[in-house]
Amino acid sequence: MMNMPQKNEMIAPRVSFGEALVELAEQYPSLRVFDADVCASTQTGLFREAYPDRFYQMGIAEANMVGAAAGMATLGLTPFVSTFAVFLAKRALDQIRVSVAYPKLDVKLNGAYGGLPTGQAGATHSSVEDIAVMRCMPNMKVIVPADPVETKLAVALALETPGPVYLRTVRCPVPVIFDAGHSIELGKGKILHEGKDAALISTGMMTPRTLAAAEALAKEGIHVRHIHLATIKPIDEDMLIDAARECGTLITVENHGVAGGLGGAVAEVITEKSPATLKRLGFTDTFLESGDDETIFDRFNLSQEGIMRTVRSMLHTK
């Protein structure tokens, strides 16, 4: 059983990730954890302390780490490989492709420090393309949880799902929006707020602030539907098609580049199945920089106010 945080608490999902590994270790005896010298940051250090014999410190060598995890998985063990998303998804990309995804091995990947928040480390550490890269990989599933509760559920979902899974966790504290009874399912979105004026579609840490934006907009008389997608692949096509038909205007919100991420995924679905007006909020073809996270988020309209501004302007020009 996992201990679930209380609603409205502020907790960094990376901590929830580390706790979940420890809390699920007995239930999943095949679980092993692999690290590339960042366990103090990604919080797999919690697992190292609790289960030192099931923890593999592979040093700063991501390619070898992923390959070794793949080899280990051929014997029925389930390595959870964890390092910064920016390195895992790209430096070890070919290893993930050929040694993990192609042979469908039971390797789980934790892309930590997803998106902008990296402790102001700047362009080299802020991952704006990991979801896009993992999403186009055959046999790969992509989970991007919203809050600390869902992060824990996502670890469990990754472990109970056979084969390769990419899980994205974030560094900064995020408000708990889900209660302990929350559940997630592959390929199923959740409507967190009802409305038909427009639909906001968010994933990951953008979901709590998108929900806050939807609630604040309702007070202004603008009633938007808010859809949270915890799994980008598989994606909930039916929910997106319904939103396109019933709301007409869609706005995606993600802590990731708009090319190929949530925005790209939603664009692919609605363009083919039910064309609608689409606005993608996210990082636009740019490397990020050091500085205050919220100031940078706001520059890309990824603050609560930025999301509200975008909705108002979309409806104004409709």
């Binding site: 014999d53 070898n64 080899g71 280990m72 998985a73 014997l75 063990l77």
Partner: peptide, 16 residues
């Protein structure tokens, strides 16, 4: 890529 995968197999052998 093969040697890394081989290490993983060997490590799993020791582990198990």
């Amino acid at each position: 890529q093969g040697l890394s995968c081989g290490l993983g197999m060997a490590m799993a052998g020791t582990d198990l």
